[in-house]
Nucleic acid binder design. Structure first.
Length: 310
DNA sequence: AATCTTTGCAACCGCAAGACA
DNA sequence: ATGTCTTGCGGTTGCAAAGAT
């Protein structure tokens, strides 16, 4: 027996919302709050599908929506997050306070994709070309291959809050333990040094993943990068994992799709959630935003974070 | 000025996961 | 344990505005 459709489609308005409909929905949510979207149209007196109401609210009517042009910092962040997360628009949007997944998706599809593709084309490396010089495509959509973290299955055992947040007194605890998480993570905790990489946290992912993230560029990780990474480790940024497969030679560590590194949402959400909480009262809050960008910059790109955050 | 093409964005659709009875 | 409901997500579509011819 099939499930009921979310709404009877006959007699319902479709397409663009009128100002009057917007008003009704806003007033209804103000009074009754979000949720129970299925009942909203009937209770609010809207000739709309509940799903449509929810979408309209989330993507357009919510008071904390930040409209207007996407800044170059946001654009840069979207590109980097997309490189890291793929088409996980909701996750990407979660790192951009006030922006919706739909907006970011549209922005990517209409502007950034071309931009990035153009850039990739310029920087196409040998590994993406066949012997005859034609480019290899990794799927039927013709996307260039890239390392993407699929943030679902893996559970994060323990999360260490980013130091800037702690230093700023935004949070009290130095550790947030996820209930049910495995307390014996194979990777030892990241060093508690006062540095911006602290939020690489006690994470249930091996070093390969970390180097994936740090150097995810869709290309092979070079030996000198690993050396650099190890220097970071030596410097107290990351403590080396004990269970790193010893057989994996440096040259073999390809940052490619086969590493289905499934990072729990909490990886970055810890940061974003705090910033979001801070920013919802004042959607454009320079401190919170710059903090978030800076922390993410440190996470996403160790080398040139000074260049794009300013 | 008229028509065609492209672009940008809001909205829709189907699917999946989690919650709940 | 199972079925249904609710919500969220990502892909796609439709349409209006802008630009090109």
């Amino acid at each position: 027996m099939g499930r009921k459709p979310c709404c009877a489609k006959e007699g319902l308005n479709r397409g663009a919302w009128s100002a009057k409909e917007d008003n009704i929905l806003v007033n209804f949510v103000k009074v009754h709050g979000e949720g129970k979207w299925r009942d909203v149209p009937q209770r609010a007196g809207l000739k709309r599908c509940g799903k449509s109401c929810r979408l309209r609210w989330l993507n357009y009517l919510r008071p904390d929506i930040r409209r207007g042009n996407i800044s170059s910092e946001e654009e840069e962040l979207i590109i980097r997050l997309h490189k890291l997360l793929g088409n996980r628009w909701s996750l990407i949007a979660g790192r951009l306070p006030g922006r919706t997944d739909n907006e970011i998706k549209n922005y990517w599809n209409t502007k950034l994709r071309k931009k990035v593709q153009g850039h990739d084309h310029d920087n196409i490396n040998d590994s993406s070309k066949q012997e005859d010089g034609t480019e290899l495509k990794d799927n039927k959509l013709g996307k260039t291959s890239q390392s993407v973290i699929r943030p679902k299955a893996m559970r994060c055992a323990k999360v260490v809050m980013p130091w800037p947040l702690i230093d700023n007194g935004m949070v009290n605890n130095h550790e947030h333990t996820i209930p049910g998480g495995d307390s014996e993570s194979p990777c030892r905790s990241a060093q508690r040094d006062n540095n911006s990489y602290g939020f690489l946290m006690d994470f249930d992912v091996n070093d390969l993943l970390i180097s994936d993230v740090l150097y995810s560029d869709g290309h092979q990780v070079h030996k000198d990068q690993i050396v650099e990474c190890e220097n970071l480790v030596d410097g107290g940024v990351l403590e080396p994992c004990k269970n790193m497969p010893s057989s994996s030679s440096v040259e073999d560590i390809a940052v490619s799709g086969h590493v289905e590194a499934k990072v729990d949402d909490s990886l970055l959400d810890v940061v974003a959630a705090e910033n979001w909480r801070e920013s919802t009262d004042h959607p454009v809050q320079p401190n919170a935003d710059s903090l978030d960008l800076k922390t993410l910059a440190a996470f996403l790109n160790l080398e040139d974070d000074h260049e794009w955050i300013n």
